[in-house]
Design a protein around this nucleic acid. Structure first.
Lengths: 402, 402
DNA sequence: GGCGATAGTTTTGTGGCGCAACCAACGACG
DNA sequence: CGTCGTTGGTTGCGCCACAAAACTATCGCC
């Protein structure tokens, strides 16, 4: 690279005429994808500001390229009826997920529909990667077998509960599985048939799915903290509808933010981490229950008056509230999304968390704060698939069929 | 707006031919600005990938518009000598800053040079806004009087130690000044002569200046946490060279992240906030010194063996280390920048902070962690000016002289 | 059945970039 | 000291993509 190029790098997004066409193709495709209902060429033109003639040519190209379909039924109303446009169901991506309690595969299409799903619930704490990957491979093959006639699978995204390297190829460390330094693509090569596989942190991908529930479609919040509560606690920060992944892609370890520094030692080498108070393992231990107790059971016991469970949940809520208030102070992300197993305790936790936020967030008087729940229990897999489908929407040219 | 437009909003960046020209003008101007040395048209072409003919046309336009100057001395070497290009010194912006200890005005030009500066060091704790703004107005007039012959001042940015609303027009609350609900533009109208004024949080603007030391030029770090230690503690998170300002622009209150929840009560309504351990007021109180003691004096006393000072500094370093480790875990921003008065203690604080980071950051084995110091003591003012100058670089069309 | 309204296509015009040829001005070398 | 090679910068032409506007198609409504 030219020496100056580095200096100018952030802005070396130079534009040719072709760039212009790519941009507008993406604009049109995103518009078609963003709408729940089919839209017409004229509707796209009105929404985007492009002229009808330009939209027509771009749509024709997308139809020819197999990314958009023209419906047969016509949209009624005054004037000439419109031909409805929808993203095709033949473009698909696979979402995969492995964590301590789930192995799952999902096939999503460009409309954001779940085309196929296969899953099982083994216990993978301290497991051998090979066996788990084999099971994942079976599920992967199952969903791929249900690819629609003439369909193309553009990628696969695997959600893992651990630290993934920046390139998305290598799992560095997944403490709760007991895995480290692993390249799962090798073990899945046979089932993948050349489909590109990328890894991602579970919470990061789940947050992506929450920010963008279907390709090109905006979720109800663009600035939020995602908390994924399983054995440990993962997380992700989303600002401007984009997941903050950090310089090396390591961002999101909210479970290891300090709640009581100097308190409970944590296997991570630190002490007083949030995870030691709001993680499942910590909560069940405090409640005096076996480690395999689910959070749903814990919640039921608390409901029935079991003191230990109540205290454990209250402490967890306190810890979450305090730590999340700090995060909101730092980043002004006024929505908290509870995902993963901890969602099962949302009813008991939410009031305390909201109270702590109101009390501890400096700008609370000027902004509404909200705690919501993500009910997708394999949200990481959904996010993994959506990651690849989003790529189709943002740069359609690369995916046009010749 | 059309109903679909909202749904498609993130991508409704449709491109016309004019967009294309604007983009490329920005690319060329950024390239000229990014280089410390003057560059030639051919150099820009090589760096950006645009052709020489296109660069020539764009440069001509920038020269005609008064944003770029052709030098007279020629760049030697084999072949025809090149005509050197530099950003003009006639485009300027004003940076203003008011905090508990400084009132300052700076005039910066498009090359990033400080053209003029005026400042004073009154004590503004619990002060009347009107008097401070009057003083600021005097300094503003002083630097504006030094605008270069034929120069244009494109904007003014005022850095304030408090919460500013999203539009950049209103100061909502500045606890350490004792100010609230204030629109400073009114009080400065006479001196501003129609120059647009925008407000920003002091630490956010200082971070901007650190991320981008001159218009269009990248600083040495693109992912960092900026800590501005004065009476209280402010901060900012920078990812991908952009300051994270949050949904309402309230981001950056790192001083009110929890260090010892349940500990020292904080005027913010919470307790155990970082600021209660690492803010100047907290440190001097702990050291048994008068509140007006500067951190430089505190450091000197510690050097001389004063136990109270040593303990106060050590506790502050501990608190910073713990909280910052949490932030790094959350966001993977491996550089910490110490700015403001706390920079005077950098030597004593840095080792402890770095030790805590190494011990408490989960991904520490895979990434270098670094604590650096920002030596600009009115960095907020610099950032305020750079904010406006950056706008010139990113969208030059709006600033071309007719 | 005529009319207005809306959807979509076709034609023509315009702006902006790449390409390639050209001119300009220097250093190196014989 | 002249020639040649090298690099900087300009000019004219063609292509590409979008805008504008005229045109066709098809509906609902009176």
């Amino acid at each position: 690279m030219h020496p100056l190029a580095a200096a100018a790098s952030p802005g070396v997004v130079l534009a040719h005429q072709s760039t212009l066409r790519e941009t507008n193709l993406a604009v049109v495709l995103r518009c078609v994808c963003a709408s729940e209902e089919p839209v017409s060429r004229a509707g796209v033109a009105a929404a985007t500001g492009l002229t009808r003639s330009t939209v027509s040519r771009l749509v024709d190209e997308l139809v020819a390229g197999g990314l958009v379909e023209e419906g047969t039924a016509q949209l009624a109303g005054p004037g000439r009826p419109a031909t409805p446009l929808r993203p095709t169901g033949r473009i698909c991506a696979v979402g995969l997920q492995v964590n301590a309690a789930h192995v799952a595969a999902r096939l999503l299409d460009l409309r954001g529909r779940v085309v196929a799903e296969a899953r099982s619930e083994p216990d993978l704490v301290g497991s051998e990667p090979a066996a788990a990957l084999q099971l994942l491979g079976v599920h992967l093959a199952q969903v791929l077998a249900q690819t629609p006639e003439g369909g193309r699978v553009v990628g696969a995204g695997l959600a893992l509960p651990g630290v993934v390297d920046g390139s998305g190829e290598r799992l560095l460390r997944a403490p709760n599985l007991g895995w480290q330094d692993l390249s799962p693509a090798a073990g899945l090569r046979e089932q993948l048939h050349g489909i590109p596989l990328s890894l991602g942190n579970e919470a990061n991908l789940a947050a992506h799915a929450f920010a963008q529930p279907a390709p090109g479609r905006q979720g109800r919040s663009s600035h939020f903290v995602y908390v994924s509560g399983e054995i440990g606690i993962g997380g992700a920060v989303v600002t401007d509808a984009r997941v903050q992944s950090g310089l090396h892609g390591f961002a999101g370890e909210i479970g290891h933010m300090p709640f009581r520094p100097g308190g409970d030692p944590c296997p991570c080498g630190s002490d007083g981490c949030l995870e030691r108070y709001a993680g499942r393992l910590a909560m069940t231990r405090r409640a005096g229950l076996p480690p395999a107790t689910t959070l749903a059971e814990l919640g039921r016991l608390a409901e029935e008056g079991h003191t230990g469970s109540r205290e454990a949940i209250d402490l967890a809520a306190e810890a979450l509230g305090v730590v999340l208030a700090g995060v909101v102070n730092l980043l002004d992300v006024p929505t908290i999304v509870l995902g993963g197993e901890i969602g099962d305790l949302a009813d008991r936790i939410t009031p305390t968390v909201e109270a702590r936020l109101r009390a501890r967030v400096m700008a609370a008087p000027w902004m509404p704060l909200e705690v919501v729940q993500d009910t997708d229990d394999v949200a990481g897999a959904t996010g993994g698939a959506l990651l690849h489908l989003t790529r189709v929407v943002t740069s359609p040219v690369a995916f046009l069929a010749t």
